[in-house]
Computed example of a mutant assay.
Amino acid sequence: MEGRTCLITGASKGIGRGIAEHLGESGANVAVNYRSSVEEAEEVVETIEDSGGQAIATRADVTGRREVEAMRDEIHDAFGPIDVLVNNAGITQDTKFEEMTREEWDTVIDVHLGGAFNCTQTFFDDIKQSEYGRLISISSIVGKQGNFGQANYAAAKSGLFGFVRTLALELAESGSTANCVAPGFTETSMLETVPDRVREVILEDIPLNRFGSIDDVACVVEFLASEESSYITGEVLDVNGGMDL
């Protein structure tokens, strides 16, 4: 990854942070996107720099096109065009569908799909013109299986499958690739809020009998961002401990 520039959206915490740190440790220039967690984003930058890499923290709400375009200008000034875009930014607003408001639906769809649209289109020329451009979107097993109280989240994560597979076709002529990573239940702050009795039920459905780690997901993203993945495109890589078998 030496000399490659990577942008990870929603990179101040959780899976996004793990991805940013892995790519930074592998020698990439990393743009750490955040919306409001500036201190956490700066910590990620420090971690990458301590490992010998280069990084910047760059603020943008991915649902705002002008903010994303301003972020592009900031990254270009620091590192030049990007080679790798990881669409990771996401939120949840969980409730049963019959009680879900249109605002809760729209907000989740706009962050996951609208954000992926804004960032991908803004950086599309960079990816297309890179010697080995990589578009990677972080989906979820919920996009495949659904989950009670998450109709909005499941619809958004499922939508990324079709989005990436279409762009894989449109980027193929340039030699750039587009793929999805679909984590299962992963040890993040989101999972920490799940009651113990529910965690036990979830574990019963995981053949490997453990929750995923952030490193489990970050290592797969790092592989997709590397030259070794150049013949993989339009795929959904599951990282779920066998839940989808």
Rank of each mutant, 00 (worst) to 15 (best):
Y132S: 11
D106R: 15
M71N: 05
N152D: 14
M243G: 02
R17G: 04
L224F: 09
L169K: 13
S139G: 11
A78R: 13
K96A: 14
V236N: 14
P207R: 05
E69C: 02
G159P: 01
N179S: 07
A57R: 10
I56E: 00
S26W: 01
T166C: 13
H22K: 15
V84K: 09
Q145P: 08
V181T: 06
E235I: 00
I109N: 00
I214Q: 10
V44E: 03
Q129D: 14
T188Y: 03
E222M: 04
N152Y: 11
E40Q: 12
P183F: 14
V111W: 00
K13A: 08
F124C: 02
A155G: 13
N88C: 06
S51T: 04
R197P: 03
N179F: 08
A156P: 05
S189I: 07
G184E: 06
K128S: 06
E74S: 15
L135V: 08
Q129W: 06
G162T: 06
D61L: 04
A57C: 12
E2Q: 15
I91V: 15
S12D: 01
K96V: 11
E98Y: 07
P207M: 15
A28H: 00
V217A: 09
G149S: 13
S158G: 15
Q150W: 03
A60H: 02
Y132I: 05
V32Y: 01
E200D: 14
R165E: 13
S51N: 11
T120G: 04
V142W: 06
T233V: 12
T5H: 05
V239M: 02
T47H: 09
A89L: 00
T9Y: 10
F97S: 08
E39G: 07
I56L: 02
A218I: 03
L224V: 11
G14V: 07
A55N: 10
G149D: 04
P81E: 05
V181H: 07
E43D: 09
H22G: 04
C6D: 10
I206D: 02
S230F: 11
I141W: 12
A57W: 08
P183K: 14
L135A: 07
D94Y: 12
T166L: 09
L113F: 00
S26G: 07
G80D: 09
A218H: 10
E235R: 14
R17K: 15
T186F: 08
V111H: 02
A70F: 04
L169A: 03
R102P: 00
D77A: 14
A156T: 01
A28L: 01
E40D: 13
N179Y: 11
G10D: 00
Q145G: 15
G114I: 00
S37W: 05
E200L: 03
V220G: 06
G212R: 04
C119T: 07
E43Q: 13
M100T: 06
